[in-house]
């Protein structure tokens, strides 16, 4: 599903963010990427959805060889990947429904499908009754649910979540995790970067630990393994 082979990433200013990274993530896995701030977690995520390109090495995602991917084809790669961020990134003037439908409209999905799938996605995240609310009228947890609905509405093979609970209180964080687990259960691969040791320790999923750009640990049912 996702394969990193000898991947290095050096930013233009000389910062080495990843060194010699080899990772294989299978279809339907749930993987935590952990590590201290500045370790290279976000860089790892950005390489998956080709926001960044590796300085060296090969990456393939869901059958796309990113090294050979023409810029023109990037949109078609991204339709296989749903991305979630710490800061939600909703459009403030659009309702919850419109934010989710937006992701389908801009990939030119047929109209009748948009309505059906948007409502299904909102139902899955438990926000069907808030479909007409603006982001400003929703709590942080609810906004993140809208973002999740937007990420899954095009039925991606993989969800990339960069610290999705970073702005949420523990209780809300758990609701989000339950949701991601449900989505994973339905067949979507999930890669999630996090600082939240309680969640990682409780969920017992595969844990990849990065430190200073190097993978220092990769365990099938791992723990967070750092002091906070």
């Amino acid at each position: 599903m996702i394969e990193f082979h000898g991947v290095w990433k050096t930013y233009p200013d000389g910062t080495v963010a990843l060194q010699s990274v080899n990772v294989l993530i299978e279809r339907n896995e749930f993987v935590f990427i952990v590590g201290p701030s500045g370790a290279g977690k976000s860089t790892f995520m950005k390489l998956i959805y080709r926001e960044e390109v590796p300085t060296k090495g090969q990456i393939s995602v869901n059958g796309f060889n990113l090294g050979k991917l023409k810029p023109r084809k990037i949109p078609y790669l991204r339709r296989n990947i749903g991305v979630i961020f710490q800061d939600f990134r909703l459009l403030p003037k659009l309702t919850a429904y419109e934010n989710v439908a937006f992701a389908m409209e801009v990939v030119e999905a047929p109209r009748r499908l948009i309505k059906k799938r948007t409502m299904e996605a909102l139902e899955l995240v438990g926000l069907k009754n808030k479909a007409n609310s603006l982001p400003s009228q929703l709590s942080g947890g609810e906004q993140q649910r809208v973002a999740i609905a937007r990420a899954i509405v095009n039925n991606p093979a993989v969800i990339v979540a960069d610290e999705p609970t970073g702005n949420l209180d523990p209780e809300t964080s758990w609701e989000i995790m339950k949701l991601l687990e449900e989505i994973n259960y339905r067949g979507t691969t999930i890669v999630m970067a996090t600082h939240n040791s309680a969640i990682v320790n409780a969920m017992r999923k595969r844990v990849i630990a990065i430190d200073k750009g190097v993978i220092v640990r990769d365990e099938p049912r791992g723990e967070y393994g750092y002091e906070i």
């Binding site: 078609y76 991204r78 339709r79 991305v83 990134r89 459009l91 937006f102 992701a103 801009v106 095009n154």
Partner: peptide, 17 residues
């Protein structure tokens, strides 16, 4: 710019944007 960023993220083509 925010809208454009999200369009790119969810896979809108350049032409569409």
């Amino acid at each position: 710019r925010r809208e454009i960023a999200i369009m790119k993220l969810v896979g809108a083509t350049n032409g569409f944007i």
